[in-house]
Design a protein around this nucleic acid. Sequence first.
DNA 1: GCAAAAAGTGACCGCTCGTTCTCCTGTATT
DNA 2: AATACAGGAGAACGAGCGGTCACTTTTTGC
Lengths: 196, 196
Amino acid sequence: MAKDTKERILTAALEMFSQKGYDGTNIRELTSSLGLVKSALYRHFGSKEEIWNALLDEMIAYYGARFGSPERLPPVPDSPEELVALTMGLVDFTIHDEKVVMTRKLLTIEQFRDDRARDLATKHFLTGLRDMFTPLFAGMMDKGLLRRDDPGMLAFAYTAPISALIHLCDREPEKTDEAMAQIEAFSHHFLETYKA
Amino acid sequence: MAKDTKERILTAALEMFSQKGYDGTNIRELTSSLGLVKSALYRHFGSKEEIWNALLDEMIAYYGARFGSPERLPPVPDSPEELVALTMGLVDFTIHDEKVVMTRKLLTIEQFRDDRARDLATKHFLTGLRDMFTPLFAGMMDKGLLRRDDPGMLAFAYTAPISALIHLCDREPEKTDEAMAQIEAFSHHFLETYKA
DNA sequence: GCAAAAAGTGACCGCTCGTTCTCCTGTATT
DNA sequence: AATACAGGAGAACGAGCGGTCACTTTTTGC
C-alpha cells in the first residue's frame, strides 16, 4: 500500500472530478476515500492542479493510444449486419467501461475551464468517431455495400446521432437500454437509407 | 438602481455560473460586478443555492414558453430550400443569442449535479429539436417533399448532427463560421438523401 | 412632509479550503 | 546493527468562502 499510491490517487481523482467537478472536489475527501490523510497526498503531487494536469496527460495519452492511430482502425465490414455489430460493440464498450464514462463526464464538465480539456472534448464528442468511420464507409462504398457518396459526410451523419445517445446514457443511465435500442434502430435505418 | 436588482443578479449569475460553474462562482465577485457589496444580495436571495434554483426556474419557464408549446411550431416548409432557410435561421439564433448560449453552457456544466438541470439538458440537447422537427417532416412527407419514412427517426437523424455542431460552437466559438457552413452542407445533403 | 419599509453598507463570524510543517514509522541498503 | 529515506500522520496556517448583523441611506405610501 505504498508504491501504487500515485496511481490510486489519479483513479480516485478521475472518479471525484467526474462526479463533482474540479472545484467541487476537495483534497480531504479525495484522500480519505483512499484511507489516507490529506497531507500524504502532497508526497505524490505538488498541488491539486498538478493532479488535474497529470489526469489530463493520462486521458490524452489513453485516447491517442486507443483511437488516435490509423492502424487501430477496425476492418471494413463485409456486410451491413457487420457494421451494425461493430457499432453496437463499440457503443457497448464506451457506455459500460467505467473509466471511459468518467473521462467523458469530466470532459463535459470541465471543457470550458481548460483548453486541453476543450480540445480533447471535441475529439471525444465529434471528430474522433467521424474520423474513425470515414475510411470505413469509403471502404464499404468500394465493396458496393453503400451507395457512392461523401464518406466524411456519411460518417458525420452516422456518428453524431449515436454520440448524442451516448451522452444521454451518461446523463441518464437508467435510459441505457432504451438508448442502445435506439442506436441499433438508427443504425439499421441508416444502412437502409444509404444502401447501394 | 433598485427595483430590478433581483433580475440583474440573476443575469449576472447566469453569466458567471455558465463560465465558472456553480462551485467556481463566489458571491463577492458576483455582486461586485453589479456595483454592490455581497451582503446586499441577501436582501433578494436567501442563499447562493436559492439563486441557482431561481435561475433554473427561469430557464425552465423560458424553454417551455419558447419551445414547449405545439402552437409555437414553425409552419411546414413548402420547399426543401425553405427547410434549409428555417434551419439556418434557428441555428443562427441559438448560436448567437447570448442568453441561450449561456443557458446551454450552464446545463452542460451542471447536468450531473442537479436533477432539474439534467432533465432540461436532455430537452435542450436531444428531445427538444427532435420533437420540433418530427411534425415538420411529417408535413413535408404529406406535401410530397420528402419520401415516406418514420418522421421521428428522420427528425432525430437531422437534428442530432446539427446539435453536435452547436455544441462545437459553444466549445470553440472561433469555429462558428465553419460550423454554420457544415450545418448548411449537412442540411442540403440530408434533403438530397430523403427527397421524395 | 413624514413615517415605514426596502435596499445597500461594512464589519464580522464560523467554517472549509489547499497547503505546509514537524514528527513518526516501516523498509531497504550497506 | 546502523543509516538513510520514502511514505504517512496530525496539527496548524492563512486565505477565501457563504452567510449574519447592526446600522445608514433611499424609496415609497399616505
